[in-house]
């Protein structure tokens, strides 16, 4: 192997040598990482590998082109339909209504007023279509959970415990029994302890014990709650 390190000064070489050894992660970090990885495995089969960059770009461009074409086509159809019907409506109006007399006719309502629907308009307003949230594949779901919990963990690491609670709540709302629920609840206990909300922290720790009696995070959660209490 070519190891041409002679271009490095002795100081830098010494620094690099000091960095060469890989520090061992604490047991809690290790346990958390493995628990998460296991959760991902239990969530289901892995998504197929991402295609190579070039084909991915090509695929994206094809999709973009298809969407653009679709939009153009529907816009053209809409414009034509609207244009034709408006044209016929104008024609009908000129055919059926006599020309307005020059004097003594009550003023027609202003177009703006005519455009607004009256309260007794018989046509009910069309209800907005409720689009259900897209169903995530297990792999995507765990990824979404990870992304959602990331700011909570970062906030706890920065000891900005108040900032950790909203993402925790959001995760609980979206992924109540999610794969990372265990980690979320552990973070909740830590955040509550950090905020000095000892009673809530104890309650959260008790709930954690009840829900995850075999959790690898249980000792850490118990210790956090007792320290905060």
């Amino acid at each position: 192997m070519t190891r041409s390190r002679e271009t490095l000064s002795p100081e830098v070489r010494a620094l690099l040598d000091a960095e060469r050894d890989i520090p061992v992660q604490p047991d809690t970090v290790r346990a958390r990482a493995i628990a998460r990885a296991r959760a991902a495995i239990e969530a289901g089969p892995a998504a197929p590998p991402v295609p190579a960059r070039s084909s991915r770009v090509a695929l994206t461009m094809r999709w973009a082109a298809a969407i653009a074409l679709g939009c153009l086509a529907s816009a053209a159809v809409a414009a034509m339909t609207y244009g034709v019907s408006a044209h016929f409506a104008r024609q009908n109006a000129t055919l059926t209504t006599p020309p307005a007399p020059a004097i003594a006719t009550p003023k027609a309502p202003a177009p703006a007023a005519a455009a607004t629907p009256s309260p007794i308009d018989e046509t009910p307003p069309s209800r907005p279509r409720v689009i259900p949230p897209p169903r995530l594949s297990p792999a995507d779901a765990i990824r979404a959970e990870l992304i959602l919990l990331r700011p909570a963990r970062a906030a706890v690491a920065r000891e900005n415990f108040a900032a950790a609670l909203p993402p925790i709540a959001e995760h609980a709302r979206r992924f109540k029994g999610g794969r990372l629920a265990e980690e979320r609840e552990a973070l909740r206990v830590k955040a509550l302890v950090g905020l000095g909300r000892a009673d809530e922290a104890r309650r959260a720790a008790a709930a954690f014990r009840a829900h995850f009696p075999h959790s690898v995070l249980l000792p850490a959660v118990g210790q956090m709650a007792s320290t905060g209490g």
Partner: peptide, 10 residues
């Protein structure tokens, strides 16, 4: 690191 695991698994 978790993302690395997911990618490794894929």
């Amino acid at each position: 690191a978790q993302e690395v695991f997911l990618a490794l698994r894929r």
